[in-house]
């Protein structure tokens, strides 16, 4: 919210104006009201990852078609679109999750800056890539281990053995995930004893402990209640100063509240990309407008 630049094409104040105010009661705010949507960030943010003419195939089924899309640094990019449009598929390309299953095929490039690494190139080692790019799944998936060991998992993979270093890093990660206060007295207890919202924050802590450059979030709050959701949203907004965030969400309010850029996808294609305020208030495409206003279908 600290960004200075005003929306370049601020939406006309549809529901404002004294004449209307006297005639009708104040309308329920919608996403087209400028105060619900984050102001557009400066367009000049450096690009952290660039998707270029990218297509993806599940064996013979094409799930993404010629997608080109930037993910900017210190910003949250939301992927929205109707079910089955390929949001999860795109997200999972970033950490090569598709490699786990036979027959999947990447076409095109996803460049990770600053080193201009083509993420989906065959010669790129997915393990070293996953060390730089963390992911949080739709359903919390803590390991059958203690809370401590869950967060320690990635650190141990990176060869950190010293007890004191592990403890220090785990505390920081749990604090970053806004979970430390709730678990500091029971770090040795099984992670399955936590509530769903706590488990999801644990998964975020686990991802953050690795100090990733990019954090992928696939509908991270879809299984959570409104309070847990708003905690995680606050958390995500805080985190964007340190890590590039890509989030898939079905919740238009959520996309509007927390993201800086929004990409609208439909049937495996990118339909529209822009600053979130633009996409929500002044969409260029009819489909986008219908979707963000809930008239889709």
């Amino acid at each position: 919210m600290v960004t200075s630049a005003a929306p370049r094409h601020a939406a006309p104040p549809v529901h404002a104006g004294p004449a209307r105010m006297t005639a009708t009661p104040p309308p329920i705010p919608t996403l087209l009201d400028s105060d619900v949507v984050r102001p557009a960030p400066p367009a000049s943010r450096a690009i952290k990852a660039q998707v270029e003419n990218f297509s993806f195939f599940y064996s013979t089924v094409q799930a993404l078609a010629d997608v080109s899309l930037p993910f900017r640094e210190r910003a949250i990019t939301a992927l929205i679109g109707p079910s089955g449009c390929g949001k999860t598929t795109l997200l999972r390309c970033f950490n090569r999750m598709h490699d786990l299953y036979p027959g999947n095929r990447y076409v095109g490039r996803i460049l990770l800056h600053p080193d201009n690494l083509n993420i989906v190139a065959r010669e790129v080692d997915p393990i070293s890539l996953r060390m730089r790019i963390s992911m949080v799944f739709q359903k919390p998936n803590p390991f059958p281990k203690s809370i401590f060991e869950n967060v320690a998992y990635g650190l141990r993979l990176r060869g950190i053995r010293s007890r004191s270093e592990l403890e220090g890093r785990i505390q920081v990660a749990l604090e970053d995930a806004a979970l430390w206060g709730e678990v500091k007295d029971r770090l040795r207890k099984p992670a399955y004893d936590l509530s769903g919202g706590q488990q999801q924050r644990l998964c975020i802590a686990r991802a953050l402990a690795n100090e990733p450059e990019v954090l992928l979030l696939d509908e991270p709050t879809s299984a959570l209640d409104p309070i847990a959701t708003s905690r995680i949203e606050d958390l995500i907004v805080e985190l964007k100063e340190r890590v590039t965030i890509a989030i898939v969400t079905h919740n238009m309010q959520q996309a509007a509240r927390i993201s800086d850029y929004t990409a609208f996808m439909y049937l495996g294609k990118l339909i529209e990309y822009g600053a979130t305020a633009e996409v929500f208030q002044n969409p260029k495409c009819k489909e986008t407008e219908d979707y963000v206003t809930g008239r889709f279908g």
Partner: peptide, 12 residues
């Protein structure tokens, strides 16, 4: 999902 969680953290 559990395996994916592990792979996503960089495990082999």
């Amino acid at each position: 999902l559990l395996r994916e969680g592990s792979y996503a953290l960089g495990a082999g």
